[in-house]
Design a protein around this nucleic acid. Structure first.
Lengths: 128, 128
DNA sequence: CGGGATCCGGATGGATACTG
DNA sequence: CAGTATCCATCCGGATCCCG
Protein backbone atom coordinates (compact mmCIF):
# COMPACT_ATOMS: atom_id res chain seq x y z
CA UNK A 1 0.00 0.00 0.00
CA UNK A 2 2.62 2.49 1.02
CA UNK A 3 5.06 2.77 -1.84
CA UNK A 4 8.08 1.04 -0.43
CA UNK A 5 10.74 2.66 -2.55
CA UNK A 6 9.63 6.06 -1.45
CA UNK A 7 9.65 5.22 2.20
CA UNK A 8 13.16 3.87 1.93
CA UNK A 9 14.63 7.17 0.89
CA UNK A 10 11.66 9.43 1.14
CA UNK A 11 12.30 12.91 -0.21
CA UNK A 12 10.10 14.33 2.53
CA UNK A 13 12.29 12.76 5.17
CA UNK A 14 15.43 14.00 3.45
CA UNK A 15 14.14 17.55 3.67
CA UNK A 16 12.92 17.15 7.21
CA UNK A 17 16.38 16.03 8.28
CA UNK A 18 17.56 19.51 7.36
CA UNK A 19 14.87 21.58 9.02
CA UNK A 20 13.36 19.45 11.77
CA UNK A 21 15.30 21.12 14.54
CA UNK A 22 13.87 23.56 16.99
CA UNK A 23 15.37 26.80 15.63
CA UNK A 24 16.28 26.13 12.01
CA UNK A 25 13.11 27.36 10.35
CA UNK A 26 12.95 30.48 12.48
CA UNK A 27 16.53 31.32 11.57
CA UNK A 28 15.86 30.75 7.87
CA UNK A 29 12.81 32.95 8.11
CA UNK A 30 14.80 35.69 9.83
CA UNK A 31 17.34 35.57 7.03
CA UNK A 32 14.62 35.90 4.42
CA UNK A 33 13.53 38.98 6.33
CA UNK A 34 17.01 40.47 6.34
CA UNK A 35 18.73 39.25 9.49
CA UNK A 36 22.34 38.17 9.05
CA UNK A 37 24.21 38.59 12.35
CA UNK A 38 24.58 36.45 15.42
CA UNK A 39 22.92 38.90 17.75
CA UNK A 40 20.17 39.70 15.31
CA UNK A 41 19.09 36.09 15.41
CA UNK A 42 18.85 36.27 19.18
CA UNK A 43 16.40 39.14 19.12
CA UNK A 44 12.86 38.00 19.90
CA UNK A 45 14.16 34.61 21.00
CA UNK A 46 14.71 35.02 24.73
CA UNK A 47 15.52 31.40 25.35
CA UNK A 48 17.90 30.81 22.51
CA UNK A 49 21.30 30.53 24.13
CA UNK A 50 24.63 31.28 22.52
CA UNK A 51 25.62 27.67 22.50
CA UNK A 52 22.45 26.45 20.87
CA UNK A 53 22.54 29.21 18.27
CA UNK A 54 26.18 28.61 17.52
CA UNK A 55 25.68 24.89 17.07
CA UNK A 56 22.61 25.45 14.99
CA UNK A 57 24.37 27.84 12.61
CA UNK A 58 27.24 25.40 12.25
CA UNK A 59 24.91 22.57 11.39
CA UNK A 60 23.02 24.67 8.90
CA UNK A 61 26.29 25.67 7.30
CA UNK A 62 27.33 22.03 7.18
CA UNK A 63 24.05 21.20 5.49
CA UNK A 64 24.77 23.94 2.99
CA UNK A 65 21.67 25.95 3.82
CA UNK A 66 23.66 29.02 4.85
CA UNK A 67 27.18 30.33 4.36
CA UNK A 68 29.33 32.17 6.86
CA UNK A 69 30.95 35.27 5.43
CA UNK A 70 33.93 36.76 7.26
CA UNK A 71 35.08 40.24 6.31
CA UNK A 72 38.65 39.96 5.03
CA UNK A 73 39.72 43.21 6.64
CA UNK A 74 37.83 42.79 9.89
CA UNK A 75 37.52 39.21 10.96
CA UNK A 76 35.08 40.11 13.70
CA UNK A 77 32.66 41.25 11.05
CA UNK A 78 30.70 38.10 10.34
CA UNK A 79 27.52 37.60 8.40
CA UNK A 80 25.38 34.63 7.61
CA UNK A 81 23.64 34.41 4.27
CA UNK A 82 21.31 31.92 2.69
CA UNK A 83 22.84 29.74 0.02
CA UNK A 84 20.98 28.81 -3.13
CA UNK A 85 19.84 25.71 -1.36
CA UNK A 86 18.64 27.77 1.57
CA UNK A 87 16.84 30.17 -0.72
CA UNK A 88 15.09 27.22 -2.32
CA UNK A 89 13.26 26.67 0.96
CA UNK A 90 11.10 29.68 0.13
CA UNK A 91 8.13 27.69 -1.11
CA UNK A 92 8.12 25.52 1.98
CA UNK A 93 8.17 28.58 4.23
CA UNK A 94 5.38 30.11 2.23
CA UNK A 95 3.19 27.04 2.56
CA UNK A 96 3.97 26.80 6.26
CA UNK A 97 2.72 30.35 6.69
CA UNK A 98 -0.32 29.89 4.48
CA UNK A 99 -1.35 26.81 6.44
CA UNK A 100 -1.71 28.83 9.63
CA UNK A 101 -3.51 31.65 7.91
CA UNK A 102 -5.94 29.30 6.19
CA UNK A 103 -6.56 27.13 9.25
CA UNK A 104 -7.36 30.12 11.44
CA UNK A 105 -10.93 30.16 10.22
CA UNK A 106 -12.27 31.84 13.33
CA UNK A 107 -9.75 34.68 13.04
CA UNK A 108 -8.48 33.66 16.44
CA UNK A 109 -4.89 34.61 15.76
CA UNK A 110 -5.25 37.11 12.96
CA UNK A 111 -8.01 39.39 11.79
CA UNK A 112 -9.18 39.16 8.21
CA UNK A 113 -7.31 42.32 7.32
CA UNK A 114 -4.14 41.10 9.00
CA UNK A 115 -4.25 37.93 6.97
CA UNK A 116 -4.29 39.86 3.74
CA UNK A 117 -1.37 41.99 4.89
CA UNK A 118 0.60 39.04 6.21
CA UNK A 119 0.10 37.04 3.06
CA UNK A 120 1.36 39.96 1.04
CA UNK A 121 4.45 40.39 3.20
CA UNK A 122 5.38 36.74 3.03
CA UNK A 123 4.81 36.64 -0.71
CA UNK A 124 7.04 39.68 -1.14
CA UNK A 125 9.84 38.32 1.02
CA UNK A 126 9.71 34.71 -0.08
CA UNK A 127 8.53 34.64 -3.66
CA UNK A 128 10.38 37.54 -5.23
CA UNK B 1 14.00 45.31 9.64
CA UNK B 2 12.31 42.10 10.60
CA UNK B 3 8.59 42.76 10.74
CA UNK B 4 7.96 42.63 14.46
CA UNK B 5 4.30 41.83 14.42
CA UNK B 6 4.94 38.77 12.34
CA UNK B 7 7.66 37.50 14.57
CA UNK B 8 5.45 37.85 17.58
CA UNK B 9 2.88 35.41 16.36
CA UNK B 10 4.51 34.16 13.24
CA UNK B 11 2.29 31.86 11.19
CA UNK B 12 5.34 29.80 10.25
CA UNK B 13 6.06 29.15 13.90
CA UNK B 14 2.44 28.28 14.58
CA UNK B 15 2.60 25.61 11.91
CA UNK B 16 5.97 24.35 13.02
CA UNK B 17 4.64 23.84 16.52
CA UNK B 18 2.33 21.22 15.05
CA UNK B 19 4.81 19.32 12.92
CA UNK B 20 8.25 19.98 14.36
CA UNK B 21 8.43 16.67 16.16
CA UNK B 22 10.44 13.71 15.10
CA UNK B 23 7.69 11.46 13.74
CA UNK B 24 4.75 13.70 12.94
CA UNK B 25 5.48 14.36 9.29
CA UNK B 26 6.27 10.72 8.59
CA UNK B 27 2.99 9.68 10.17
CA UNK B 28 1.04 12.27 8.20
CA UNK B 29 2.75 11.09 5.03
CA UNK B 30 1.90 7.48 5.82
CA UNK B 31 -1.74 8.43 6.26
CA UNK B 32 -1.77 10.20 2.93
CA UNK B 33 -0.47 6.96 1.48
CA UNK B 34 -3.21 4.93 3.10
CA UNK B 35 -1.92 3.83 6.47
CA UNK B 36 -4.41 4.05 9.32
CA UNK B 37 -3.51 1.52 12.01
CA UNK B 38 -1.13 1.52 14.93
CA UNK B 39 0.95 -1.31 13.63
CA UNK B 40 0.97 0.00 10.10
CA UNK B 41 2.69 3.12 11.31
CA UNK B 42 5.39 1.03 12.90
CA UNK B 43 6.30 -0.66 9.66
CA UNK B 44 9.52 0.71 8.22
CA UNK B 45 10.24 2.52 11.46
CA UNK B 46 12.28 0.02 13.46
CA UNK B 47 13.09 2.45 16.24
CA UNK B 48 9.67 3.87 16.81
CA UNK B 49 8.51 2.45 20.11
CA UNK B 50 4.94 1.93 21.26
CA UNK B 51 5.18 4.65 23.82
CA UNK B 52 6.52 7.23 21.45
CA UNK B 53 3.99 6.35 18.77
CA UNK B 54 1.14 6.36 21.23
CA UNK B 55 2.12 9.74 22.62
CA UNK B 56 2.66 11.14 19.19
CA UNK B 57 -0.77 10.05 17.96
CA UNK B 58 -2.36 11.54 21.03
CA UNK B 59 -0.67 14.85 20.52
CA UNK B 60 -1.61 14.92 16.86
CA UNK B 61 -5.18 14.17 17.81
CA UNK B 62 -5.08 16.93 20.40
CA UNK B 63 -3.79 19.29 17.72
CA UNK B 64 -6.69 18.22 15.55
CA UNK B 65 -4.50 16.89 12.76
CA UNK B 66 -5.91 13.39 13.02
CA UNK B 67 -8.94 11.71 14.52
CA UNK B 68 -9.16 8.38 16.28
CA UNK B 69 -12.00 6.22 15.09
CA UNK B 70 -13.13 3.33 17.27
CA UNK B 71 -15.43 0.71 15.81
CA UNK B 72 -18.67 0.75 17.80
CA UNK B 73 -19.08 -3.01 17.65
CA UNK B 74 -15.45 -3.93 18.17
CA UNK B 75 -13.63 -1.45 20.34
CA UNK B 76 -10.28 -3.04 19.54
CA UNK B 77 -10.76 -2.01 15.94
CA UNK B 78 -9.15 1.40 15.84
CA UNK B 79 -8.23 3.59 12.92
CA UNK B 80 -6.56 6.94 12.61
CA UNK B 81 -7.63 9.32 9.89
CA UNK B 82 -6.53 12.75 8.80
CA UNK B 83 -8.88 15.56 9.70
CA UNK B 84 -9.54 18.44 7.33
CA UNK B 85 -6.75 20.29 9.05
CA UNK B 86 -4.43 17.34 8.58
CA UNK B 87 -5.40 17.05 4.95
CA UNK B 88 -4.57 20.73 4.50
CA UNK B 89 -0.92 19.86 5.15
CA UNK B 90 -0.79 18.40 1.66
CA UNK B 91 0.87 21.41 0.04
CA UNK B 92 3.55 21.52 2.69
CA UNK B 93 4.31 17.84 2.21
CA UNK B 94 4.44 18.32 -1.52
CA UNK B 95 6.91 21.20 -1.24
CA UNK B 96 9.01 19.22 1.23
CA UNK B 97 9.27 16.43 -1.30
CA UNK B 98 9.93 18.73 -4.24
CA UNK B 99 12.74 20.43 -2.37
CA UNK B 100 14.69 17.19 -2.12
CA UNK B 101 14.01 16.26 -5.71
CA UNK B 102 15.07 19.67 -6.98
CA UNK B 103 18.13 19.96 -4.77
CA UNK B 104 19.44 16.56 -5.83
CA UNK B 105 21.03 18.06 -8.93
CA UNK B 106 23.67 15.36 -9.21
CA UNK B 107 21.08 12.60 -9.13
CA UNK B 108 22.80 11.30 -6.06
CA UNK B 109 19.67 10.01 -4.38
CA UNK B 110 17.35 9.56 -7.34
CA UNK B 111 17.84 9.02 -11.03
CA UNK B 112 16.22 11.41 -13.44
CA UNK B 113 13.58 8.85 -14.28
CA UNK B 114 12.89 8.17 -10.62
CA UNK B 115 12.31 11.85 -10.00
CA UNK B 116 9.63 12.00 -12.64
CA UNK B 117 7.94 8.95 -11.18
CA UNK B 118 8.23 10.15 -7.61
CA UNK B 119 6.87 13.58 -8.43
CA UNK B 120 3.91 11.95 -10.10
CA UNK B 121 3.22 9.71 -7.12
CA UNK B 122 3.35 12.53 -4.62
CA UNK B 123 1.19 14.72 -6.78
CA UNK B 124 -1.38 11.96 -7.06
CA UNK B 125 -1.45 11.22 -3.35
CA UNK B 126 -1.25 14.77 -2.08
CA UNK B 127 -2.89 17.03 -4.61
CA UNK B 128 -5.96 15.06 -5.63
C1' DC C 1 -4.17 -5.86 17.98
C1' DG C 2 -3.64 -1.33 20.39
C1' DG C 3 -1.75 0.21 23.45
C1' DG C 4 -0.12 1.43 29.05
C1' DA C 5 3.80 1.25 32.72
C1' DT C 6 8.39 1.42 33.83
C1' DC C 7 13.15 2.24 33.42
C1' DC C 8 17.32 3.99 31.58
C1' DG C 9 20.90 6.68 29.06
C1' DG C 10 22.02 10.07 25.89
C1' DA C 11 20.95 14.07 23.69
C1' DT C 12 19.31 18.66 24.01
C1' DG C 13 18.12 23.06 25.82
C1' DG C 14 19.08 26.91 28.53
C1' DA C 15 21.59 29.90 32.02
C1' DT C 16 25.67 32.00 33.18
C1' DA C 17 30.24 33.51 32.88
C1' DC C 18 34.06 34.51 30.21
C1' DT C 19 37.03 35.88 25.95
C1' DG C 20 39.45 38.09 21.66
C1' DC D 1 30.14 41.59 18.47
C1' DA D 2 30.64 36.58 17.94
C1' DG D 3 31.22 33.35 19.98
C1' DT D 4 33.51 29.35 23.76
C1' DA D 5 33.33 26.81 28.19
C1' DT D 6 30.71 24.77 31.91
C1' DC D 7 27.14 23.07 34.29
C1' DC D 8 22.62 21.48 35.05
C1' DA D 9 17.90 19.94 34.20
C1' DT D 10 14.79 17.94 31.25
C1' DC D 11 13.10 15.57 27.90
C1' DC D 12 12.97 12.09 24.68
C1' DG D 13 13.71 7.92 22.51
C1' DG D 14 13.99 3.21 22.85
C1' DA D 15 13.73 -1.41 25.13
C1' DT D 16 11.08 -4.49 27.65
C1' DC D 17 7.21 -6.30 29.80
C1' DC D 18 2.45 -6.43 30.45
C1' DC D 19 -2.64 -6.18 29.67
C1' DG D 20 -7.73 -6.41 27.86
Amino acid sequence: MVEKFIIKQCPIELTMKLINKKWVIQLIRDMFFGASRFNEFKENKPNLSNKVLSNCLKEMEHNNLIKKIVDEEDSTNIEYKLTEKGLALNKILYELAMFSLNMDVDNEYYSKEDKIQIEKIFRNQLMK
